[in-house]
Amino acid sequence: MSTVPPSELVVTVAEHLPTIAAGAGERDRERALPRAELDLLSALGALAVTVPATHGGPGGGAVEAAELLRLLATVDPSVAQVPQSHFVYLRLAEIAGSPALQQQLFGDVLRGARVANAQSERTGATVTDIATRVRIDDQGWAVVDGEKFYATGSVLADWLAVLARDRDGADRIAFLPAETPGVSVIDDWDALGQRTTASGTVRLDAVRVPLTHVAEREAAVGGPHGYGAFAQLLHAAIDVGIARGALTDAATFTRTSSRPWFESGVDRAQDDPLLVQRYGELEVAVRAAEAALDVAARAVDATWREPSDAAATEASLSVAAAKVLGDRAALEVTSVGFELGGTRSAARGTATGAHDRHWRNARTHTLHDPVRWKLQHLGRWAVAGTPPPRTAQV
């Protein structure tokens, strides 16, 4: 039984941010996976923050999960992205999982286990085309066959949540230990940014799973539970965290490494009124994104307390707004950081600036779930009162 309140777990993670930040630049350069950092989060109990109190957990909600990811993303958004799908699939198990699955999965997470997604596929015309299949064998087991890519956190996961389609075309989530026979996880993620998310290709060859550990995805996605909004909230939290971390590092660079422009008439770059003005504009953008994230997290929590169509609609709209503002802030701050730092900020190996890492991470992560569609949903609501659809992306 966990006796640590979820808010205290957030404070504890904040206290350990310097440890996680210490090697972030080197991990990015060397593509060294953050095993020690994730193990630290597991040991602190942070990754169990949303385990329901009825299962011995802290019983935290979207507010705590989003703040944890935002904090982590200020220092290393790759570390922050690993728990994103972890928390999302714990929520799915809470909504749609069998008692047997909940007991085993939540118990393992309370002991430090991590859950990774095995969801995306390369071959479909869109992200909703799923080739991975689940069937029932003669012994009454579920059998999963398929291949996934960009399975965030899978290389360092204890459990995998595998999206598969049954013979009737319904989507199922098969929860299975990562060492289950027939599972292969290949560490082959190599991208511009978010380089150390422990993502990989997951191959499933006649993987047998107890039927009790296969959940109906539609029960979570289609209900008024804010499930898709929660998933998107956590992505938004990462973007907002990147923006804050990049702004903090840019300001440090200005104070310690930048030279003033000769026309400014000042001795220190930090006293240049044009730089100060630009920093003020960026601070507004980041604060707006942080405020929207907090509003959205509370809206998602409202769906957890009292699920309803109205609450689910408000959660999706609030999260869409937070996602747009977070996306814009992350991209603007990480780009303008170079402008404010000058030529020196583009030098490779700049210790205090790290502008290229921030920009690459922001540019890569904000490619998740395009904000142009968030604006469409917000616009349709504003014009005609049309609620957003219920999907895992809204």
Score class of each variant (00 low, 15 high):
residue 218 E to W: 15
residue 219 A to W: 05
residue 220 A to C: 06
residue 221 V to N: 01
residue 221 V to S: 06
residue 223 G to S: 10
residue 224 P to S: 12
residue 225 H to G: 10
residue 225 H to I: 03
residue 226 G to W: 00
residue 227 Y to H: 13
residue 227 Y to I: 02
residue 228 G to W: 05
residue 228 G to I: 05
residue 229 A to M: 10
residue 230 F to I: 14
residue 230 F to N: 12
residue 232 Q to W: 01
residue 232 Q to I: 04
residue 232 Q to K: 15
residue 233 L to E: 06
residue 236 A to F: 00
residue 237 A to W: 02
residue 239 D to L: 02
residue 239 D to W: 11
residue 239 D to G: 04
residue 241 G to Y: 13
residue 242 I to R: 03
residue 243 A to K: 06
residue 243 A to C: 08
residue 243 A to M: 10
residue 245 G to K: 11
residue 246 A to P: 02
residue 247 L to I: 13
residue 249 D to F: 01
residue 250 A to L: 05
residue 251 A to N: 11
residue 251 A to D: 13
residue 252 T to M: 05
residue 252 T to C: 09
residue 253 F to L: 14
residue 254 T to H: 03
residue 257 S to A: 12
residue 258 S to T: 15
residue 258 S to E: 09
residue 258 S to W: 03
residue 261 W to S: 14
residue 262 F to V: 10
residue 262 F to C: 03
residue 265 G to T: 05
residue 265 G to E: 07
residue 266 V to R: 13
residue 267 D to F: 06
residue 268 R to Y: 07
residue 269 A to T: 02
residue 269 A to M: 04
residue 270 Q to V: 13
residue 270 Q to H: 06
residue 271 D to H: 13
residue 272 D to I: 03
residue 272 D to V: 04
residue 273 P to K: 02
residue 273 P to H: 04
residue 275 L to C: 00
residue 276 V to N: 02
residue 278 R to H: 05
residue 278 R to T: 09
